[in-house]
């Protein structure tokens, strides 16, 4: 479904991604783990078109998307929940969700999807007229995921959904991620520092170090890999 082929991305003269390649198949949950500053967020930004790669190609459903503008990439079905949630602070919860449907015109289906979201996260329904910035961290993460879902993405990119959240909330968020994957057959690309948790929900995983992919394997294999255990699982 998504093929990243020899991608190198730079910030000015600094190379953040070094010739990375990865593949995501339809219906999968794949995870990209690695330390701070390894280039995980840059990978997602390159896919979304915000920091376009300088070399290499990104193919989504047989169509090259590197060099496309971010809104065209969203229109093709790739939505991102960026790191730090990035809720529009002065828009209400309902307006934030509405922004998720920015490129859609099918009013009836939007209404159905909204009902689905209220059902998925009843707390958001209660807060629908509240400004996004007044929500708690966990609620904001729910809102950020919901906003991305409102675009009906085929591929959902999640950047550090567990960041700064209480363990109970994290578990709830990850349950929802698995639910979305199974119920809507949404393919999920999960970037996490919490490698243990990520590898438990994912089917496959990639390990990133200093801007390069150093390992690629099925999630259970990575979980039992000695090097991964040592470096990322704290065992």
């Amino acid at each position: 479904m998504l093929r990243v082929n020899g991608v190198s991305t730079y910030y000015g003269n600094i190379q953040a991604l070094k010739n990375i390649s990865m593949e995501v198949s339809e219906g999968e949950i794949i995870t990209l783990i690695g330390a701070n500053g390894a280039g995980k967020t840059t990978t997602l930004m390159s896919i979304s078109g915000l920091v376009p790669p300088r070399q290499g190609e990104i193919i989504f459903k047989d169509r090259p998307i590197h060099g496309m503008s971010p809104e065209k990439i969203v229109a093709l079905g790739i939505s991102q929940v960026p790191e730090g949630r990035r809720i529009f602070p002065y828009l209400t919860v309902a307006e934030n969700l509405d922004m998720g449907t920015f490129l859609r015109n099918d009013k009836d289906n939007i209404r159905k999807d909204l009902a689905y979201i209220w059902d998925l996260f009843p707390i958001l329904s209660k807060r629908r007229h509240q400004a996004g910035g007044t929500l708690s961290g966990g609620e904001q993460q729910m809102l950020a995921i919901s906003r991305a879902l409102m675009a009906r993405p085929k591929l959902l990119l999640l950047d550090e959904p567990s960041l700064g959240l209480a363990p109970l909330i994290v578990r709830q968020i990850f349950e929802i991620i698995m639910k979305i994957n199974i119920e809507n057959n949404t393919t999920i690309f999960l970037v996490e520092q919490n490698a243990n948790l990520a590898l438990k929900v994912a089917h496959r995983g990639y390990v990133m170090e200093n801007g390069a992919i150093t390992m690629a394997d099925s999630a259970p294999n990575l979980l039992s890999n000695e090097a991964v255990k040592k470096a990322y699982l704290g065992l």
């Binding site: 979304s48 915000l50 503008s69 971010p70 809104e71 969203v74 229109a75 939505s79 991102q80 960026p82 990035r86 529009f88 602070p89 002065y90 828009l91 307006e95 509405d98 922004m99 998720g100 920015f102 490129l103 906003r147 675009a151």
Partner: peptide, 23 residues
């Protein structure tokens, strides 16, 4: 209006606005 909401969203967080498909 749609353009009005896009304007507010862009003012509050430009790159996030791009990530939801705002030109």
């Amino acid at each position: 209006t749609k353009i009005g909401k896009a304007m507010r969203a862009t003012a509050q967080d430009r790159s996030m606005a791009m990530l939801v498909g705002v030109n």
